[in-house]
Amino acid sequence: CEICHEVFKSKNVRVLKCGHKYHKGCFKQWLKGQSACPACQ
């Protein structure tokens, strides 16, 4: 996960249209302050 830098250990992964992958919880937190993929912006 590019947000928390932890390895994906479960199926709790969100894959965006751009192809980047994040933990669902991390991405949900990210969206509270941002509106785009962290890696693409």
Rank of each mutant, 00 (worst) to 15 (best):
C4V: 00
L31Q: 13
H20I: 01
C1L: 02
L31N: 14
W30F: 12
G19T: 04
G33C: 08
V15W: 07
C40N: 03
V7P: 07
V7R: 14
V7F: 02
G19Q: 04
N12W: 03
H23L: 03
K9T: 03
L31D: 09
C37H: 02
Q41A: 13
F8L: 07
G33T: 12
G25V: 05
G25M: 13
C4M: 00
Q41C: 05
R14H: 12
L16E: 14
G33P: 06
K9C: 03
C40Q: 02
C26H: 01
K17I: 09
L16C: 10
K11V: 06
A39Y: 04
V15A: 06
E6Q: 15
C18F: 00
K21G: 08
V7L: 11
H23M: 03
K24D: 15
N12V: 06
P38Y: 08
E6A: 15
C18T: 00
C40R: 02
P38W: 06
E6R: 15
K9M: 03
C4L: 00
R14V: 06
F8W: 03
K11M: 05
E2T: 15
P38M: 11
C18N: 04
L31F: 09
W30V: 13
Y22A: 15
K9R: 04
S10R: 05
Q29N: 13
K28H: 10
I3E: 03
K24C: 11
G25L: 07
E2C: 05
Q34P: 11
K21M: 12
F27M: 09
R14T: 13
C18G: 01
K21F: 14
K21S: 13
F27W: 15
K24N: 04
I3V: 03
K17P: 11
W30P: 10
A36F: 04
W30I: 09
C26V: 01
V7Q: 13
S10V: 03
K24P: 07
E2F: 05
I3C: 02
K21V: 11
E6C: 10
C26A: 00
C26E: 03
C4R: 00
P38D: 04
F27V: 11
C37N: 01
E6V: 14
G33R: 08
A39F: 06
C37P: 03
E6M: 13
C26I: 00
L31H: 10
P38A: 10
H5L: 14
I3D: 09
Q41S: 14
C18A: 01
K11P: 06
K24E: 15
H20N: 01
H23N: 01
Q41N: 11
H23R: 01
Q34D: 14
C26K: 00
K32E: 14
C37E: 03
C18E: 02
K17R: 08
N12H: 12
H20Q: 00
Q41L: 07
C26T: 00
K21L: 09
P38C: 08
K32R: 07
E2H: 10
K24A: 13
V7H: 15
F8V: 09
K28Q: 14
A39L: 06
A36L: 10
G25N: 15
G33K: 12
C1D: 05
Y22M: 15
S10I: 03
K17T: 12
H20Y: 07
V7D: 15
C37A: 03
N12K: 15
Q29C: 09
C26Y: 02
A36H: 12
